[in-house]
C-alpha cells in the first residue's frame, strides 16, 4: 500500500485506497487511490474518478494510513512454509477411476 513519509502541511488531503465491486457477486477489488478531505468526500470522488465507465456497483474507501501490511522482509518466513503443505490440495489424493469425479 501507499506510504507517504513527506511532512504534510496539514491541509493536504489524506490518501484513500479505493476498492470497487465491479459486478454484483464479485469481491471488491483494489483499483487505486485518491486524495480526499474525508470519507464522504472520498466516496464521492471515487465514484467520479474510478467508475466513469460503469466499472462498479459498490465502492469502499479506506484511509491508506489505516492499512497494516505484512512486513515485506518477512515475506519468505510468512508464506514459504505454506508451500510444503501439499496435502491441502486435492491433487494430493488418488481417487479410483471407478469413483469418477469427486
Amino acid at each position: 500500500m501507499s506510504q507517504v513519509h513527506d511532512q504534510n502541511s496539514g491541509n493536504d488531503w489524506p490518501l484513500f485506497e479505493v476498492f470497487v465491486r465491479s459486478k454484483q457477486g464479485l469481491d471488491h477489488k483494489h483499483v487505486g487511490s485518491l486524495h480526499a478531505a474525508d470519507d464522504t468526500h472520498a466516496i464521492s470522488l471515487a465514484r467520479d474518478v474510478y467508475t466513469r465507465r460503469q466499472e462498479g456497483v459498490s465502492i469502499w474507501v479506506v484511509p491508506a494510513a489505516s492499512i497494516t501490511a505484512s512486513a515485506p522482509e518477512q515475506k519468505s518466513d510468512n508464506f514459504d512454509p505454506m508451500a510444503n503443505k501439499i496435502y491441502r490440495h486435492p491433487t494430493f489424493y488418488d481417487i479410483p477411476d471407478e469413483i469418477g469425479h469427486m
Binding site: 488531503w13 485518491l34 486524495h35 480526499a36 464521492s44 470522488l45 467520479d48 474518478v49 466513469r52
Partner: peptide, 11 residues
C-alpha cells in the same frame, strides 16, 4: 482546485 474536483465538475 484539485484534479479530483475537475473530474467531478466535468461529470
Amino acid at each position: 482546485p484539485a484534479i479530483e474536483e475537475d473530474i467531478a465538475l466535468t461529470n
